[in-house]
């Protein structure tokens, strides 16, 4: 008899547990405003939330006079685990006649970058940063190889 009561209790408990689950799904069914989906392609310019620190790509910021801070020291190139960065430097003759190494091309291969941030970490001049850009895919693989310094840009000398 006790076994029978226990059995009935088990069945009732089973049904109760199932009904609890059903109530939960019904709760979400009747409350569509609790839903969490984002309307991604539509909200890409409006409500999309990309945090400030999000690492989308490496950029070499230029100031308003088209000057950057890279001294072509190639520490970032050495810090990169994937060989993403290639610094091509040129030697020019300064105004005072001294030969100087300056940045010619800051070549960045986005296709090989894992956004580990080692280059930003290694840079002694804080010349490069991570930008929170997204939707960077292109149709041609060669388009992923970018030259980050703008044409005609110059080194921003430290104010001393």
């Amino acid at each position: 008899m006790r076994a029978l009561i226990q059995y009935i209790k088990d069945v009732a408990q089973g049904f109760y547990s199932l009904s609890q689950g059903l109530l939960l799904t019904l709760k979400y069914f009747v409350r569509p405003w609790k839903h969490i989906v984002e309307q991604y392609p539509e909200n890409r310019t409006t409500t999309i939330y990309i945090p400030e620190k999000f690492a989308g790509e490496v950029v070499l910021p230029h100031d308003e006079n088209n000057r950057h801070k890279c001294t072509a020291c190639t520490l970032c190139e050495m810090a990169c685990p994937n060989g993403t960065i290639k610094i091509i430097s040129a030697t020019i003759e300064g105004e005072d006649g001294k030969k100087k190494k300056v940045l010619d091309k800051w070549v960045y291969n986005l296709g090989m970058c894992t956004m580990c941030g080692q280059c930003v970490d290694a840079c002694p001049q804080d010349a490069i940063t991570m930008k929170n850009s997204f939707e960077l895919s292109v149709y041609n693989r060669n388009d992923l190889i970018k030259v980050l310094n703008k044409p005609g840009s110059k080194l921003k000398e430290k104010e001393s």
């Binding site: 799904t25 979400y28 069914f29 569509p32 609790k34 839903h35 969490i36 989906v37």
Partner: peptide, 10 residues
């Protein structure tokens, strides 16, 4: 639609 709404989707 039922599946979506129960799974917090549209």
């Amino acid at each position: 639609k039922v599946a979506g709404f129960m799974q917090l989707r549209l």
